[in-house]
Design a protein around this nucleic acid. Structure first.
Lengths: 201, 201
DNA sequence: GCGTTGCGAAACTCAACCGTATCGAAATAT
DNA sequence: ATATTTCGATACGGTTGAGTTTCGCAACGC
C-alpha cells in the first residue's frame, strides 16, 4: 500500500503535456470570444483548433461545462487602480475602464456568457461572478464607502443602490443602446456627475 | 397577365390554416420561455409540440431565425400606466413593473435572448428592441421629460443618463446579484429616491 | 365532380458531433 | 532496457436534427 498522497515524482509514465492543456483552454476561450455560445461549442472543434486529439481533452475534463469553467478561471480581470483623491475621479476611472472593455470583443462575449448562459449553466455563472464581477464590485464599493466615511458623500447614502446606479447606467448604455456608435466620449463623466449629485451632502 | 396585386379570393386550393400557424408560433415562444436557447431550438421539436408536420413549418419559414423573429413579433409587452401626479410615483411604478417581470420566467428568458443572442442574431435583437424595449423607454423618457418641463426636476438634467441610471440600477439588481432572494421589497422606492435626489432642483 | 393546394405523418439522405476504442509513436521512471 | 503513461490520429457506433420527398386525406373554388 504505497501512499499516493504527497510526493513530487508521482508519474510512472509520460507526464501530461502542459502545452496541450494550455492550447485546449486557449482554443475554448477564443471560440467563446468569437461569439460561439456554450451550447454550440463542440469538443471536436476545440480539439481541432487546439491541434490536439479528442482523447487528450476527455482525459482531463469529463464534459464541456467543466472545461469551460476551467477556461474561464484562467481569465485575469485587470481592475483599474482607484486611488485618486476624489470619489468623482475614481468613479470616472471605473466607468471609463468599463467602457473601454466593451470595445474588446473578448470581454463582450464573456460578459454575454455571464448574462445569458446563467440560466442554463449555474456553475459557470457562479464561477464567472467570483472571478470577474466580485473583485470589481468590491473595488467600487470601497470607493463609495470611503467617500461616505470621509464626508464627501452623505452618510445616509445607500451604497448598494449607488453602485447599481453607476454600474447599471454604464451597462445600460453599452449593452441596450439602439446605436452603439454614438456613445459620447465623456459618458463616464456625465454619468458620474449626474449620479453623484444626488449623493453629496 | 392576370394581376396578382389586389383581390380577396386569391386562393385556388385549400387555404393555409391560421390555427396551425398560431400553434407553431406559440410552441416556439413557449420553448424559448422555458429556457431553450435559440441554438438548441429545433424545428422538429417545435413541430412536435405544435402538433403539426415539419412541412407546415417549412412552407412558411425558410429557417429558424425567421420563425423566431416572427414569433417574438407577436409578443405584446404590457406597459404600466404612468399617469401619477409625481415623477417619483411614476418611476416607482415603472421600476416595480420591471421587478415584477423578472419573476416571470417567460420575461426572464426573453430578456436573455435580447441580451445574449444579440451578437449571433442581429435581426432578432433588433426586432426585439423595437417591440419590447423601445416603447418602455419612450414611456420612461416621457415621465422624466414631463418632470423637467414642470420644474419638478432640474432643467439641466440629462434625460438619457437619468433613464440609464434608473433602468440600469434595477437591471443590475435583478440580473447581476449573487443572491436573488434577498431583494428588498422596497427596492423601486429606494432606487427612485436615491437617484431622483440628484435630479431635483 | 375536378383541379388545386394545404394538411399531418412518415420515410429518407446528409451532416455534425458525442463518447469510446484502438493504434503506433513518444516521453518518462526504474 | 522495460514498464507505464500520454500523445495525436483515426475509426467506430449511436444520436440528433436539418431539409426533402412521398403519401393519403382534407378543404377550398369552380
Amino acid at each position: 500500500m504505497v501512499t499516493e498522497e504527497m510526493g513530487a515524482a508521482r508519474a510512472p509514465g509520460r507526464p501530461r503535456s502542459e502545452k496541450a492543456e494550455k492550447a485546449i483552454v486557449d482554443a475554448a476561450i477564443d471560440m467563446i470570444a468569437e461569439g460561439t455560445g456554450v451550447a454550440e461549442l463542440s469538443i471536436e472543434a476545440i480539439a481541432a483548433r487546439a491541434g490536439v486529439g479528442k482523447t487528450t481533452i476527455y482525459r482531463r475534463w469529463s464534459n464541456k461545462e467543466d472545461l469551460v469553467v476551467d477556461a474561464l478561471a484562467t481569465l485575469k480581470a485587470p481592475i483599474p487602480v482607484l486611488d485618486a483623491a476624489s470619489v468623482r475621479e475614481n468613479v470616472v476611472r471605473y466607468l471609463g475602464s468599463m467602457q473601454q472593455e466593451t470595445h474588446h470583443r473578448r470581454t463582450r462575449c464573456i460578459m454575454n456568457i455571464a448574462l445569458s448562459e446563467s440560466e442554463r449553466y449555474p456553475h459557470l455563472a457562479e464561477r464567472f461572478r467570483e472571478i470577474a464581477i466580485k473583485p470589481r464590485r468590491e473595488a467600487l464599493r470601497s470607493v463609495i464607502q470611503r467617500g461616505v466615511d470621509s464626508g464627501e458623500l452623505r452618510a445616509d447614502v445607500d451604497v448598494e443602490v449607488a453602485m447599481a446606479a453607476l454600474t447599471g447606467a454604464m451597462l445600460f448604455f453599452t449593452k441596450w443602446r439602439d446605436n452603439e456608435d454614438d456613445l459620447p466620449l465623456d459618458l463616464p463623466e456625465r454619468i458620474a456627475d449626474q449620479i453623484l449629485t444626488g449623493l453629496r451632502p
